[in-house]
């Protein structure tokens, strides 16, 4: 092959292995995501807060009615009490009063804008809830079926690259014996490398699928499966 005799070659890849994963039914992962995804709690609390804010802003459309009262008493025994109703005696008197008031902001345009903004915030959280209700299960299903697909690809590419390995062994042995073509040996190396690459890619997809499923279910994949 034009390679000096003491040299050989190897596809120097790291041993990428599929992570350990025993798939259960999809329902289990959907249930897990409902229980473990933090988004569900965040959205629930967010909705309560935004709804309260919205209601508070709406209150500005209406007047604020209030009541006020006052009482005052003063007595000075050494002073003569002034009984003239036109003169106010600060030292001898008893008095009380009640007032009813109303405050109403007539800037309806600003209030409307504030209410609109609060409503928008509330709707945003509502949409987030809808997204979570629909999106998270989709995320779980997508990751789950990606894993299933990657598993199938691993099986098929595994057969392919093992067959290519046999071809490689045979063609290189023939070439070294002087009875094989260099092209055949080179082709076998290329095909082997390609199929091995496909195989490793399938393992990568499988592992990524498992990590995505962990994430979709609200689990930390490193905690669950370790760094390797």
């Amino acid at each position: 092959m034009g390679i000096p005799n003491p040299e050989s070659f190897e596809i120097a890849d790291k041993n990428l292995e599929p992570v350990k994963f025993d798939p259960a039914g999809i329902k289990k992962y959907l249930d897990d995501s409902k229980q473990q995804r933090p988004e569900y709690d965040q959205i629930k609390n967010g909705m309560i807060a935004k709804e309260a804010l919205y209601e508070a802003e709406k209150a500005d459309y209406y007047p604020t009615i209030f009541a006020a009262g006052m009482a005052s008493y003063a007595g000075a025994p050494d002073r003569d009490a002034v009984r003239n109703p036109w003169i106010y005696d600060r030292f001898n008197h008893e008095e009380a009063g009640v007032a009813l008031g109303m405050k109403w902001n007539f800037d309806f345009g600003i209030t409307k804008a504030k209410v609109g903004q609060a409503r928008a915030e509330y709707l945003k959280v509502t949409k987030k809830k809808e997204y979570a209700d629909m999106g998270i299960p989709v995320q779980v299903e997508q990751a789950y079926y990606e894993i299933m697909e990657a598993r199938r690809v691993i099986d098929s590419t595994s057969k392919g690259y093992k067959a290519a390995r046999k071809w490689l062994v045979g063609s290189v042995a023939n070439y070294d014996m002087g009875v094989g073509e260099m092209k055949d040996a080179a082709d076998s190396i290329v095909v082997y490398a390609q199929l091995k690459q496909e195989y490793l890619k399938a393992i990568l997809n499988y592992n990524m699928g498992v990590a995505n499923l962990d994430h979709a279910c609200g689990r930390d994949t490193l905690e669950v499966r370790g760094a390797n």
């Binding site: 003491p6 050989s8 190897e10």
Partner: peptide, 15 residues
Amino acid sequence: MFRIKLSGLLMAFTA
């Protein structure tokens, strides 16, 4: 991604 070097399949063969 792939590195050609001495060993692997041919090494196995020689082994």
